[in-house]
Design a protein around this nucleic acid. Structure first.
Length: 882
RNA sequence: GGGCGAUUAGCUCAGCUGGUUAGAGUGCCUGCUUGACGUGCAGGAGGUCACUGGUUCGACUCCAGUAUCGCCCACCA
């Protein structure tokens, strides 16, 4: 048994990932007869590389997957990536631009080829990063949202929904991105408050010299105005209803009409109506029979309907129109106005409401069951408060625009006959029109929203629409791990689609984790330029430390601000684990064999640490079950470092180094306990820090089994030792008191004092005598005596516990003034605690209403504190006599 | 306008269903070549738990309000 002097993360990471994979540990076997546990990865977009959010997301999933595997489950963690329609198309277009090309020049087929090449590149990079992170994904099952099988699933879903009337084609106002030249769904529009202007414009009433004033934030849209609306109850303008006004610049006569949508208080109470470029105006136009005039092309330039402004970009047109209005005397005033403006979530271009023909999913019928599945607890959000967000959106859900005017995506399986215009929705392209028999068939140019295919992810990846063994065993999945930013985009859609097509929920739990934010609380994103690269962190600190830090940060219900300082601290932890193992191994013989530890062999500290180990097993397991990753990680950290290393290992040194032959059995027991606690700890730490733990395991294991596939520790009922645990706490307090006095008094370590213990308690006296060696070693003493009748010397430094007084005769070694102020400080501290307790106990309503056990506890505390204060005062008085 | 969350040590953060001496990492101070580790060991300083009320015998913890910050949704002619 041996490990190298130093841990080298880079080589261990490469070696172990390869070994695990080659041994097939990542692969899920449908036929293994074990209880299934499944997770599907939120498929990363093939747009580049992974960021901190991905690192957190996948670390959590890997912790769960590794833990469940060690729990003996048949674990499937399904890998894959998302084609990410707009986002990926944009990336490739940018690359083309750098080459001086455009996608139009390439043509659709060639362009798609280029995107596939990019997909290979980006996908490869992402896979490399996931591997580096240690993700135990079943790579044999890797899927892509645009691969053949998933395309089949998409077509099947589309056709089914279409046949049932849940997908329809409609001519409507949608959100249009003039840069991406595609429609977007409502949730793909991000609203931002912008400072703009509110232009007040004068319209002449036809046939008169009177004017009205309308106000607008988008003056360019007046080119498409076909009416002016007033509130039907607005007396100021009721005489105008039915009249016509002259649209300035355009010189078109348009009607004034009444519509209750208009808010009398806002602006001038008169609304210019542009049915083709505003959703509300569109509705009003429909209600009042207005003409719809589209004035823009797909890139946001004014089209032939815009007269002299034709060819101008929408913002240039706005500027020019305002100038012309001003020149023509139509501009009454300009106010400052802030309003929220929709932006494309992929390219941040200002969205244009745009009238066009698109495909929609009629979503309400699907939403109903999806709401129910959360209400009745079949699906559970963790933390629970996200359910409210989910309901809020689902109750107010609007039809989903699923068509995109892109080249990268699932082409909509609709076919048009060029002869008779008939539309066919089919799984396979029809060779001729079923209505007129023509062979002139053309497929719909539009592709589907990326989220349409990712919404099928939990079952499409398992082979649906075939009824595969994987689906039977692993669907529904056990848990979905994701960020709250895609609850609407993805989680809700998967729930709806899963219920509709699998007739079952897609996952039991939805664990919503924190978003990794920058120091200003902003999302880390490439466009903001505030990203921390996970690869750099892994290079610098090792993957294990990085993962452990993320786990510690993963507290529920709160976002995290990433801190490299904390990462540094947890790297030290991996170092600590390594070095402590080195110590243990150098104390084990060549032929060391782990044995079952009979309780009768165990000494008090052995019992204590095994008891603590039991508690840690329980706490870590419970925390993992409840998705409290930070608690689990902290529990392991505290146990391993501050109990096992700081105390138990230190305590074994006296036993291990003893030259006394009668101590041989005691040291052998210590060796067994050290090995046992180490190996059990490694198991529990493995899901968090897979590499360093497996590397250590390689050096200490006594079988061929790798740590990754070993079994998760269970509480051992043989090792429940309450009494020894509490005795050890007393022991620790004794040592702590001695160290405290030495430290406070600046007693140099080479000045070894002898300590006198004065106690009336036989238990404590026995404890001290029995653990004499350890007290001497840990307190750095020359010797100890127990003397119930000890009369302290005036120059003794002292410390007080509830049933014990500790005296350090430091004649000549200490500064009496220092000791005096130290005692005063102690008295103040204990005194104020005592006072608090006394106030409480003298309060009659407390003693009459508080539960008995609380009163008992407080009473005991008061007695102890009182005794301590008393003793401290005595010591101080003696000092004063000098 | 509606909703959610945050405010705890210099910094980054934990503290579950009310009773703890309010913790961790990091930073700071003191001492340490203690036969695993200075990425370490021992000791220490540092907090009116944002503010104001309320409920309660008892509030960092529950309730209401205020302030500041952040996020989501809706509307904005």
């Amino acid at each position: 048994m041996r490990i190298p002097d130093n841990f080298d993360p880079a080589s261990a990471e490469e070696k172990w990932y390869k070994t695990w994979e080659e041994n097939g540990y990542f692969h899920a076997d449908e036929n293994d007869g074990r209880e299934p546990f499944s997770i599907v990865i939120p498929p990363p977009n093939v747009t580049g590389s992974l960021h901190m959010g991905h690192a957190l997301n996948n670390t959590i999933q890997d912790i769960i997957a590794r833990w469940q595997r060690m729990m003996g489950k048949s674990v499937l963690w399904m890998p894959g990536m998302d084609h990410a329609g707009i986002a990926t198309q944009n990336v490739v277009e940018r690359l083309l631009r750098e080459e001086g090309k455009s996608r139009e020049e390439l043509g659709r087929e060639e362009f798609e080829k280029r995107v596939w090449e990019w997909k290979e590149h980006s996908g490869g990079q992402i896979k490399g990063q996931l591997r580096r992170l240690g993700s135990s994904l079943d790579w044999e099952r890797e899927r892509f949202t645009l691969d053949e099988g998933l395309s089949k699933a998409v077509q099947k879903v589309f056709k089914t929904l279409y046949d049932e009337g849940l997908i329809y084609k409609g001519f409507r106002i949608i959100n249009w991105c003039p840069r991406c030249e595609t429609a977007l769904s409502d949730i793909e529009t991000e609203y931002r408050e912008l400072d703009g202007s509110f232009w007040h414009i004068r319209y002449r009433i036809a046939g008169t010299d009177e004017y009205i004033v309308v106000a607008t934030t988008r003056p360019e849209t007046m080119l498409g105005d076909t009416g002016v609306a007033v509130n039907p109850d607005d007396e100021r303008y009721s005489h105008l209803v039915g009249k016509k006004v002259i649209l300035p610049l355009v010189e078109r006569e348009i009607p004034v009409f009444a519509d209750s949508y208009v808010d009398r208080e806002f602006g001038t109470g008169l609304v210019k109506v542009t049915p083709a470029h505003d959703p509300n105006d569109y509705e009003m136009g429909k209600r009042n029979g207005l003409e719809e005039i589209n004035i823009m092309d797909t890139r946001g330039f004014i089209n032939e309907n815009g007269g002299v402004y034709r060819g101008l970009d929408r913002f240039a047109a706005r500027k020019k129109i305002v100038e012309d209005l001003d020149k023509g005397g139509y501009l009454v005033k300009v106010e400052k106005h802030t309003h929220s403006v929709g932006h494309c979530y992929r390219c941040q271009t200002v969205i244009e409401p745009y009238l066009s023909s698109q495909w929609f999913v009629k979503i309400k019928p699907l939403a109903e069951e999806a709401i129910k599945s959360v209400e009745d607890g079949r699906i559970r959000f963790v933390p629970k408060n996200w359910e409210k967000t989910y309901y809020e959106w689902m109750y107010n859900i609007r039809d989903w625009c699923i068509s995109r005017q892109l080249w990268w995506g699932h082409r909509i399986p609709a076919y048009y006959c060029d002869e008779c215009g008939e539309m066919h929705v089919e799984l396979d392209a029809p060779s001729k029109c079923s209505k007129c028999g023509s062979a002139k068939i053309r497929q719909e140019e539009d592709v589907l929203d990326t989220w349409f295919s990712s919404g099928l992810w939990p079952f499409s990846t398992m082979g649906w629409p075939e009824n595969t063994a994987a689906l039977q065993k692993y669907y529904p999945t056990s848990v979905l791990v994701t960020g709250f930013d895609i609850i609407f985009f993805w989680v809700a859609r998967m729930i709806m689609m899963g219920l509709k097509f699998m007739d079952d929920i897609p996952f039991r739990d939805v664990y919503i984790h924190a978003l990794v934010r920058d120091e200003h609380g902003h999302k880390m994103s490439k466009s903001r330029g505030n990203v921390v690269d996970p690869l750099i962190m892994m290079d610098k600190y090792g993957t294990d430390a990085f993962r452990f830090t993320l786990a510690v940060f993963a507290a529920q219900g709160r976002d995290v601000v990433f801190s490299e300082k904390r990462l540094e601290g947890y790297r030290s932890f991996t170092n600590k684990i390594w070095n402590s193992t080195k110590f243990i191994l150098m104390n084990l013989p060549e032929d060391f064999k782990p044995e079952q530890l009979e309780p009768s062999r165990l000494e008090v500290f052995d019992r204590w640490i095994l008891h603590r180990l039991n508690i840690t097993v329980e706490r870590v397991s419970l925390a993992l079950e409840e998705y409290r990753f930070n608690d689990a990680a902290n529990e392991l950290y505290d146990f391993y470092w501050h109990e096992f290393c700081d105390w138990y290992i230190e305590l074994t040194k006296q036993r291990l180094y003893s030259k006394d032959n009668s101590q041989a059995e005691s040291s052998e027991t210590a060796r067994q306990v050290l090995y046992h606690v180490l190996s059990q700890s490694l198991k529990m730490m493995h899901p968090f820090m897979p590499y360093v733990t497996e590397e250590i395991w390689e050096g200490i294991k006594n079988s061929d089994e790798h740590l990754m596939v070993s079994s998760w520790p269970k509480k051992d009922s043989l090792y429940v030792f309450e009494k020894e645990a509490s005795e050890t706490e007393t022991f620790k307090e004794i040592v702590y008191k001695i160290r405290n006095v030495r430290g406070e008094m600046n007693v140099p370590p080479d000045k070894k004092a002898s300590v006198v213990f004065k106690t009336g308690s036989e238990d404590i006296a026995a404890l001290i005598k029995r653990e004499e060696v350890h007290i001497i070693a840990l307190g750095r003493l020359s010797g100890i005596t127990v003397d119930p009748a000890y009369v302290p010397d005036k120059s003794d430094a002292s410390a007080v516990m509830s049933e014990l007084e500790i005296y350090l005769p430091l004649k000549g070694l200490i500064d009496l003034g220092m000791e005096k102020s130290r005692l005063e400080k102690e008295i103040t501290k204990a005194g104020s605690d005592l006072e608090k307790v006394e106030v409480k106990l003298s309060n009659e309503s407390f003693t009459s209403k508080a539960p008995a056990e609380v009163i008992e506890k407080e009473t005991k505390k008061r007695d102890e504190l009182a005794a301590i204060v008393e003793k401290l005062k005595e010591s101080l008085n003696k000092l004063a006599e000098l």
